[in-house]
């Protein structure tokens, strides 16, 4: 009888486990294509790898996943190519930081959404300044060069087959003359339809803009160095085309570019709203 012999019981358990190792460990390990990189795979600089170390050390991966699933629920986290993440995206990752919980947003393509290192450094120092409801820890106690490395790592988390957004340093310093050629001649689809623009813009502003620009949209101090714009004041000096461009690309100082998260129509509605802000909400 099997159960009289301790060695046989142990051997049986061992053999059953070996089956699992063969099928679910050894077999995937032998799949060459699971290690292959392609043009979308992140290439980490030395500084970015140092940032990854800090990311591990501080346990960012307990709150942030780095995997966009193959289901529509994750659509907002997809990169510019509108796709889930795939094995080749991780070919240069060791360890791979897929994560198991989404207390905060997925970061697999965060470098595409938020390409500004200054934005990241400001956010890491005081997440509550960007949104008071955030429960992310403040990392203001980390030395400046570590925050720099973390930010470098975060902006390299993107789809490398697509060029990163080109952002100006500071919008505040720019004038109409700096507006790129291709934006100058664009037509505003909401010309003469202010109500249509307000209907689209208002919910977006409440959801995505007041956190940084303040409920009155008059701007607020985000960090010691960064102040968001007073939209009443800026709207005076800008054309609708300039505002549309500013909203589309953002700035390194900390205005996110919305090209990849809002549609053209939505961005035009926002530009129209801000251009006429004195009239809409005096």
């Amino acid at each position: 009888m099997l159960h009289r012999n301790a060695a046989l019981v142990a051997l049986g358990a061992f053999l059953l486990l070996s089956f699992a190792i063969a099928v679910t460990v050894a077999l995937p390990l032998m799949q060459e294509e699971l290690y292959a990189a392609d043009e979308a795979t992140p290439q980490y600089s030395e500084l970015a790898l140092k940032g990854k170390q800090i990311y591990q050390r501080e346990g960012c991966f307990y709150c942030h996943t780095q995997q966009v699933r193959t289901i529509p629920n994750d659509a907002a986290f997809q990169g510019p190519n509108k796709r889930p993440s795939r094995p080749s995206d991780y070919a240069n990752d060791n360890p791979v930081l897929l994560g198991t919980e989404r207390t905060g947003p997925d970061l697999k393509f965060v470098g595409d959404r938020l390409p500004s290192k200054d934005w990241h450094i400001g956010h890491l120092k005081n997440p509550r300044a960007y949104d008071p409801r955030s429960i992310m820890p403040s990392y203001a106690h980390l030395p400046e060069e570590e925050l720099e490395a973390l930010a470098e790592y975060l902006v390299s988390l993107r789809d490398w087959s697509v060029k990163p957004l080109q952002q100006p340093e500071r919008l505040a310093d720019l004038t109409e003359a700096d507006l790129p050629e291709e934006f100058r001649s664009l037509q505003n689809p909401f010309a003469g339809d202010l109500q249509g623009a307000v209907a689209i813009a208002e919910p977006i502003i409440a959801q995505s803009c007041v956190a940084c620009h303040g409920p009155d949209l008059r701007g607020k101090q985000l960090t010691e160095k960064v102040r968001s714009a007073d939209l009443y004041e800026r709207s005076q000096a800008r054309s609708e085309q300039f505002l549309y461009w500013a909203i589309t690309v953002g700035s390194k100082l900390g205005m996110p570019g919305w090209e990849r998260s809002l549609s053209e129509e939505q961005r035009w509605a926002l530009a129209t709203y801000i251009k006429n802000i004195q009239q809409i909400r005096p």
């Binding site: 190792i21 699971l34 290690y35 094995p87 991780y90 070919a91 791979v96």
Partner: peptide
């Protein structure tokens, strides 16, 4: 130093 890279690291981790 982890000898195994990429998604296979995750497969090992969860095994």
């Amino acid at each position: 130093q982890n000898p195994i890279w990429g998604v296979n690291d995750a497969i090992l981790n969860w095994f």
